[in-house]
Design a protein around this nucleic acid. Structure first.
Lengths: 91, 91
DNA sequence: GCCAATGATATCCTAAAATATATCAAATCG
DNA sequence: CGATTTGATATATTTTAGGATATCATTGGC
């Protein structure tokens, strides 16, 4: 997958976990099956924008466009938690 | 359409025009038929993320996620009206 | 006036996302 | 331990974006 997309979905996943929502809980909130959320978080699909916007909002994020040439000044929600070293396989 | 999406596509359209690209030219650049770009700019479809990312990049924009609760500090290419006096110059 | 460029639309077709369900293994907990 | 929760995965069906093309009205030059 495009990596840019993975980045977006990873950010949403991190936000979901931060807010202590399970995939099912988030799914309920947004009206989407848990299975779909799993696929999205694992970058197994190329979601529609409306889908990403809905998920983002459910975890208090907003999809925006910023200048690309300009330095990554105030980027996004990036760096979920600082450095964090190696390891940690989820699940 | 979702309005949030319209906002994103409008932003891209504005950027396209700013860079003096016709829909056909942008289409060539991204490898997508002019007709599709028209549909997207007119919010007649709900594009896939990869599509929006490609278009955005072609006009030097990047799709990002920002906190929604937080004030719209340094938003995007947005700025309906420039800097506007009020404190906080984005910097 | 003529012609090229531009954007909107339409059709047909294919690919892929989304929905609905259902499992299932691995954690988590009481 | 057994029960529940969680996330990954699978299959079948529906829906829709995207690709390829073509047309057409409008606009802008020349």
């Amino acid at each position: 997958m495009s990596s840019a997309i993975e980045h977006l979905t990873k950010t949403i996943k991190a936000a979901r976990q931060r807010s202590h929502l399970s995939q099912r809980a988030l799914g309920r909130k947004v009206g989407m099956p848990q299975a779909q959320i799993s696929k999205i978080e694992n970058a197994a699909v190329d979601p529609k924008i409306s889908t990403l916007v809905a998920l983002a909002r459910a975890v208090d994020l907003e999809l925006t466009l910023v200048p690309r040439t300009d330095s990554p000044r105030f980027n996004a929600v990036d760096s979920p938690h600082p450095p964090e070293k190696e390891g940690l396989s989820p699940r």
